[in-house]
Simulated assay, not measured.
Amino acid sequence: MNNTGTMDRRSIPVLVQLRTDLTEALYLNLLQEMQKDVYKLFALYSNRKFNNEEGG
């Protein structure tokens, strides 16, 4: 995750598969709250591309 939010938005398709009611706005809001509590988001990259089942 970086300070520009790029990683944050790229992870949304994967997270929506887990929480179908999740919107980008809600996710970013929740992420801000989680970061205050020092939660971390990790992602798997392959060939420098973010992996998800939707062609990422």
Rank of each mutant, 00 (worst) to 15 (best):
Q32N: 15
L22K: 03
K49E: 13
K49R: 11
Y39R: 08
D8R: 09
T20H: 14
D37L: 12
Q17C: 06
L22C: 04
K40M: 14
Y45F: 13
N51W: 00
L28N: 05
P13T: 12
R9G: 03
D8K: 10
L41I: 12
K36V: 13
T4W: 05
E33R: 09
K49Y: 04
E54Q: 11
S46C: 04
D37I: 01
N2T: 08
T23L: 03
G56F: 02
F42W: 07
G5S: 07
K49T: 10
K36A: 13
G55C: 02
R10A: 14
G5W: 01
T23Q: 05
R48K: 13
E33Q: 13
E54A: 13
Q35N: 09
L41A: 10
M7N: 09
T23E: 05
F42Q: 09
L41R: 15
N52P: 03
F42K: 11
L31M: 11
R19G: 00
S46V: 13
Y27N: 01
S46A: 14
V16H: 02
L30W: 07
S46N: 12
Y27C: 04
L44G: 06
M7L: 14
E33M: 04
G55L: 05
R48S: 14
I12Q: 04
S46R: 13
R19C: 09
L18G: 08
L30A: 07
Y39P: 01
S11G: 15
T23Y: 02
R48C: 06
N29T: 14
L15Q: 10
V14L: 15
F50M: 10
R10Q: 15
R10K: 12
D37F: 06
N47P: 03
R9D: 04
E54K: 13
N47Y: 07
D37V: 02
T23R: 01
S11R: 12
D37E: 14
E54N: 14
G56M: 02
E54F: 12
R48I: 01
N2W: 02
N29A: 15
A43E: 10
L44F: 06
T6H: 08
E24Y: 03
T23K: 03
Q17A: 11
N51H: 06
